[in-house]
Design a binder for these strands. Sequence first.
DNA 1: ACCTGAACACCGTTCAAGT
DNA 2: ACCTGAACACCGTTCAAGT
Lengths: 193, 193
Amino acid sequence: MTAYLARRPKRADGRRNYDRILEAAREAFDARGTDAALEDIARAAGVAIGTLYGHFPTRETLIEASVREGLDALRASAEHLAAADDPVGALTRWVHQTVAHCSTFRGLVGFLAASTYDEGTPLHHSCVEMHAGGGMLLARAQGAGLVRPDLTAEELFAAITSAAWARENSPPGHDHSARLIELLIDGFRTGAR
Amino acid sequence: MTAYLARRPKRADGRRNYDRILEAAREAFDARGTDAALEDIARAAGVAIGTLYGHFPTRETLIEASVREGLDALRASAEHLAAADDPVGALTRWVHQTVAHCSTFRGLVGFLAASTYDEGTPLHHSCVEMHAGGGMLLARAQGAGLVRPDLTAEELFAAITSAAWARENSPPGHDHSARLIELLIDGFRTGAR
DNA sequence: ACCTGAACACCGTTCAAGT
DNA sequence: ACCTGAACACCGTTCAAGT
């Protein structure tokens, strides 16, 4: 069953409030993570709390609307990178991009991990898109004999989300997520060991 | 500055309550993660909420007391494994053990990541112990020329916590943390790529 | 079709009164 | 030295009344 997704209203005042809430939400999630107080977001947007709930019935729909465009763009990016002549370089670049997007806000990657295999979830669609984009680049690298053939898109996704978690949760000056990605990609390569 | 740590009281009734709270907390954290309701824990332990706060002034001190023994035992395990003749095998085994302990409860690894570089935190001591244990096994594997000499104990710790997060946050049937560890260790090896 | 804010529920945390 | 539970604060969520 497909989850309810927030829709931008048709009426002018509704659309204005919808946009303001989304802008306030992005700022709040950015500053305080995905468990930012919804009342603060409503106040910053200049609307009553009921208005926020009217547009975004759950916290997850609000998070989803805040990141949808960014995450779905990764699919297009994968298609673009698939044209490169260096399949492992393309995969590596895409993984770095994806990790960055999955750690846009502190807490986001937890929702993504919970959404990947649960259709009834607002973020599920974006997860499927990412999965498909990664699977495409993975298959190309495997087809060229450069990445272990037994590596699955699920495992790639697990690697990406765990690196994104590391990025989200690193204290300043101790973010080793980029290095983690390099080590993982090295582990992906054919003949590694 | 060192953080306050919970201490087992001397008076018999206090000790009894302390133990009961800890037992109830382990069950609650196990079932519902580290953000389980403290009132539920107090009720399950048969004490008033103020009693819980008297022994464990913050949620983190309660979490710390729940996992201290398990985490600190990893140091002894590292020392034991250091005697093995296969340094990479020893490191691999220790990483698997450590990942398992860091994901004892859902939410634990977030506290661990925040505690590693913050002395004023109840779990800091256990993090330092783990860090030291891992550093020892890493140095041995590097000394034998089997692991990249530029890999640091901080990076190893980041790899372990991110794998633990993957383990904590995997839906049933989709836990790829063990594979992630294998891929990472392969990335650690000398001459990988 | 959309907005408002009071009302209720839930839970974290403190503290005065007790033994 | 330790226990109790009422009291307060904060925030999520709903809904009747409004435009």
